[in-house]
Amino acid sequence: MDNLNIATVYTGNNCTGEPIMIPVMPVRPELARAYVPYQLYNKIFSAQESLKKGTVFPELVK
C-alpha cells in the first residue's frame, strides 16, 4: 500500500535540521480526525515553470 510509504520531514528551513521519518498516511487512522498524506518529494519544475504554475511540485498542481 502507498500508505506505508515513509516521508522524510525536515524540521529546519530548506531541508535542513533534524529529519523526522513518518508514514505518508497513518497506519491506524482514527475516527473523527482529518488526515492529509505527507508529500513525497520527487521531481520539481524549473524556476520559470514554477512561477507560471504557482508551485515547484508537479504533484500539487490541482
Partner: peptide, 29 residues
C-alpha cells in the same frame, strides 16, 4: 494565487499531523 491555496492546504494538513503526533502520548501510526 489559486494554486498557492492548494499548496497551503497541503502544508496545513502536514502541520496538523505533526501537531497531533507531537501532542499525543501514543503514536498515531
Amino acid at each position: 494565487l489559486r494554486e498557492r491555496e492548494v499548496v497551503h492546504y497541503q502544508r496545513f494538513g502536514e502541520t496538523l499531523r505533526i501537531v497531533r503526533e507531537t501532542m499525543g502520548k501514543k503514536k498515531y501510526y
